[in-house]
């Protein structure tokens, strides 16, 4: 522990990141450039989120890290271990126990509270990037609120697929001003972004931080005749029976049988502990035994 400065980054760097976070909170949805540091993990593995977490953590915090909703996948485990080693903070897998939650591509099912902070890992912070390759031009478009192009993307979706096929990283407008990429969370999670907790977004390779203060207005873009729909698989969880959670589809064998399980592992486990049973839970336990 004493070999590292608290939470790996030096104090000056953390101050620089905190300034960017504060500016981001003051201008919800605006991408604040920051001097992203080299982290001991490759770009694309959450270097932005890790830097934001490092600048946010205090020794009293309890950290939870999820990757696609799960606490036990490689990315989540390694980042959790990273902070256990470099910051010595307590870690947890229970959403309610955590004060800082770093996430990749999901928002926990359980509603977050005002004393919690949700940190997102963001691969590409610019929602207009795939339509307009020039950064100079996209910045101008943001400053002049020229967002017609965003709807061209949705138009193309409907023209090609008959419905808005964008199912993740679904663009949102924040407080009626900035169009923002919510990071690749499923669009099922979009309505949850109007929440009590502070939400911070870090993109390490792209060197951008943006933020949503609590109870910020977040509207998913749509057309009048093709309204936004928070979709999920039409199925209850096969493990815990939940009908309100976002599901992963798991292929079980070569014959094509499948099951749907909550992508939020903590939510699923706590429901099972409370006695909820899904359609395939009994069968699975037999096989295990």
């Amino acid at each position: 522990m004493s070999d590292y400065n608290f939470a790996y980054l030096d104090e000056q760097t953390k101050r620089m990141i905190r300034r960017a976070i504060l500016k981001g909170l003051a201008i919800p949805g605006y991408q604040v450039p920051f001097a992203s540091r080299e982290m001991p993990m490759p770009y694309g593995w959450g270097t932005g989120g890790v830097q934001v977490s490092a600048a946010t953590l205090t020794p009293e915090d309890t950290l939870k890290v999820i990757d696609q909703g799960a606490d036990d996948t490689t990315n989540a485990v390694s980042i959790r271990k990273f902070f256990e080693k470099t910051a010595g903070v307590a870690t947890t897998e229970e959403t309610a126990q955590a004060s800082v939650i770093q996430t990749r591509h999901r928002i926990p099912e359980e509603a977050l509270r005002e004393d919690q902070i949700l940190v997102y890992q963001v691969p590409i912070p610019e929602p207009l990037r795939f339509l307009e390759p020039s950064e100079v031009e996209t910045r101008k478009m943001h400053s002049l609120e020229e967002y017609g192009l965003m709807h061209v993307k949705l138009y193309e979706d409907i023209a090609k697929h008959g419905a808005i096929a964008t199912s993740y990283a679904y663009p949102v407008k924040v407080e009626g001003r900035y169009v923002m990429d919510p990071s690749p969370i499923p669009k099922f999670d979009n309505p949850k972004m109007e929440m009590a907790a502070i939400q911070l977004f870090g993109a390490g390779r792209e060197q951008r931080i943006y933020a949503l203060p609590p109870y910020c207005q977040v509207v998913s873009l749509d057309f009048e005749d093709f309204p936004f729909e928070a979709s999920k698989a039409e199925h209850p969880c096969d493990m815990c029976g939940a009908e309100d959670s976002y599901l992963d589809e798991v292929i079980m064998d070569d014959a094509g049988s499948r099951m749907f399980v909550c992508s939020d592992t903590d939510y699923c486990a706590s429901r099972r502990a409370a006695g909820h049973v899904g359609a395939q839970a009994a069968a699975l336990e037999e096989t295990a035994a």
Binding site: E146, G148, L149, H151, V152, Y155, E156, I158, A159, D222, F223, E224, D225, F226
Partner: peptide, 17 residues
């Protein structure tokens, strides 16, 4: 269609049909 529609969407048209 998207090319022609872009200017309409840029001035606030939000009805796909």
């Amino acid at each position: 269609g998207g090319n022609v529609g872009e200017r309409l969407m840029a001035v606030g048209a939000r009805h796909y049909g």
